[in-house]
Design a protein around this nucleic acid. Structure first.
Length: 477
RNA sequence: UCCUUCUUAGCUCAGCUGGUUAGAGCACAUGACUGUUAAUCAUGGGGUCCCUGGUUCGAGCCCAGGAGAGGGAGCCA
């Protein structure tokens, strides 16, 4: 008999039909009641075993974590807490689980502990919900762009350029590391390496994405990205997934509109398709917040926060306006910021972003038109000569979730800016070709997928929204 | 990388002013019970007190160094 998914069974009207289910035991109570989970939903299916007619050896092997197959009739549950249950006629142990050694106990575990057993944490309610939501979000990203007629481009993972200057790169080499070829000057001789030059894991697919956009008009990438930064925070990973759309004939406003529409689309998709899991996560977060002092608790539940995001426009303010708001804030006047906001041109600190998003506007904020000095070379220079057409989207609790800009399409302006910032023009001649041949206004942005998953699941550490997080000094599994 | 907190049973944590045999709850095992919902009750087993060195009659506790983890900052997505 074929296996039926528990998610489907729970929606089925019981008519004494015979079914077979397979999954992993969550708990076994009273020698009678198995809570069975197969990962299709957080809800367990209750299997009722008649222990008087079941061999003792089988009963002993129904332990937390064991894989079992159960066949029986689907009936309306006699107990509270579930509507249907399976009255088992046979239970087969597929894979034993020594209860004494199995690390997951039928009790609450800390996220830190579960992180150490990331290979098993999929089997918990929290991570089950998180990774089902993550899957759904990834699908929603593709669905959104596909519906908009965007082309999905696979930009390279191994790249010769880190020209964006987005961060430290991981080197990729085929050298015998205990015997690295050197040239006459004593430097590493990359000519002898696999690619004949120094290459690295990609830090962004943007530059390659721009090339494709200059032919297909609207494209996006969605792939892994690598940064060798020694960042130890709850929102940085050495390996993370990034969504990077790039659109020809888009200006900054079009770019913002698209980003906002996309974020709202994805959140809506999650609420429509993963409500059960999000409700669970929302409740989980509320429980957790009860531990905190009153003034640190968030005013809205996760569910309300997500609904709020799709029902309200994001606030759009320029960097200059933001500086004014911060400078005039009581927070600044009472010197509550570690870094006081005094003059135009300073980069905004996390505390400033948090203040704008969480205290002042209390909703997602799009900050635009930053001073050119604190932004990348490829961003389009505004007519004021001081700012560039950049936009960052800031989310409550997360900070920067999207970073984007209108790109500088004017060759002379781009080259001047590159030499000012010490970017080697020759190495990027392929990039500059797009400005030489049929250049046009275009724009794009990067969205850190894990930060989006963080926001939508209400988790607080980015290491808990990717199956196997890679962070400094940590590459397990 | 910097600042800061932490590391005691499988997990979450107590452990007094440095004092003799290191505790609790949960988990686990055994038994009882048998329509339970993190079942309940009884009994039991379980410890490299993160590591190395030092101070002391005596260190889980004090000191030094190291490792790992959490939180914050910077860098960013």
């Amino acid at each position: 008999m074929t296996r039926v998914r528990i998610k489907d069974i729970l929606k089925t009207t019981p008519t004494n039909q015979t079914i077979t289910v397979k999954g992993w035991v969550r708990t076994f109570r009273n020698n009678s009641f198995i809570a069975l989970n197969d990962g299709s939903t957080n809800n367990n299916l209750q299997i009722v075993v008649d222990f008087t007619n079941t061999p003792e050896e089988i009963l002993k092997r129904i332990t937390t974590g064991a894989a079992i197959s159960a066949t029986g009739t689907l009936i309306a549950s006699q107990g509270k807490g579930q509507t249907v249950e399976v009255k088992a006629t046979s239970v087969e142990i597929i894979g034993d689980s020594d209860a004494e050694k199995y690390p997951l106990q039928p009790k609450k575990h800390s996220l830190e502990f579960l992180r150490e057993i990331a290979h098993l944490r999929f089997r918990t309610n929290t991570f089950g919900a998180v990774f089902r939501v993550r899957n759904s979000l990834a699908f929603a990203v593709h669905k959104f762009f596909n519906e908009k007629g965007f082309l999905y481009i696979h930009t390279p993972i191994i790249s010769a350029s880190d020209a964006e200057g987005a961060g430290e790169t991981f080197h990729v080499t085929n050298f015998d590391l205990s015997n690295i070829p050197k040239d006459e000057a004593g430097a590493v001789d990359h000519k002898q390496d696999f690619f004949g030059k120094s290459v690295n894991l990609t830090v962004s697919g943007q530059l390659e994405g721009e090339l494709a956009a200059m032919a297909f008009s609207d494209i996006y990438t969605f792939g892994p990205t690598f940064r060798a930064e020694n960042s130890n925070t709850t929102r940085h990973l050495a390996e993370f997934w990034m969504i990077e759309p790039e659109m020809a004939f888009y200006e900054l406003k079009d770019n913002m509109d698209l980003a906002e529409e996309m974020l709202q689309y994805i959140i809506k998709h999650a609420l429509e398709n993963n409500l059960e899991d999000i409700e669970f996560l929302s409740q989980r977060l509320e429980e957790e917040e009860k531990q905190k002092p009153q003034n640190e608790r968030s005013e809205l539940s996760l569910l309300d926060k997500l609904k709020f995001c799709i029902d309200n426009k994001f606030e759009r303010v320029t960097y200059t306006q933001a500086i004014e708001i911060l400078r005039e804030s009581n927070h600044n006047k009472k010197k509550k910021f570690t870094y006081l906001v005094d003059k135009w041109g300073v980069d905004l600190q996390s505390e400033h972003e948090r203040y704008l998003v969480e205290k002042h506007f209390k909703k997602p904020v799009i900050l635009t038109d930053y001073p050119k000095e604190i932004k990348s070379f490829y961003m389009r220079q505004n007519d004021d000569g001081k700012t560039v057409a950049a936009m960052d989207i800031l989310f409550p609790g997360i900070g920067e979730i999207v970073g984007g800009s209108q790109r500088e399409e004017r060759l002379d302006k781009l080259e001047t800016r590159m030499s000012e910032m010490g970017i080697p023009v020759e190495e990027l001649s392929w990039y500059l070709d797009t400005r030489r041949f049929g250049t046009c206004p275009h724009a794009g942005f990067g969205l850190g997928f894990e930060r989006l998953v963080l926001f939508i699941t209400g988790m607080t550490n980015i290491r808990d929204v990717i199956p196997f997080p890679r962070t400094p000094k940590n590459c397990e599994f």
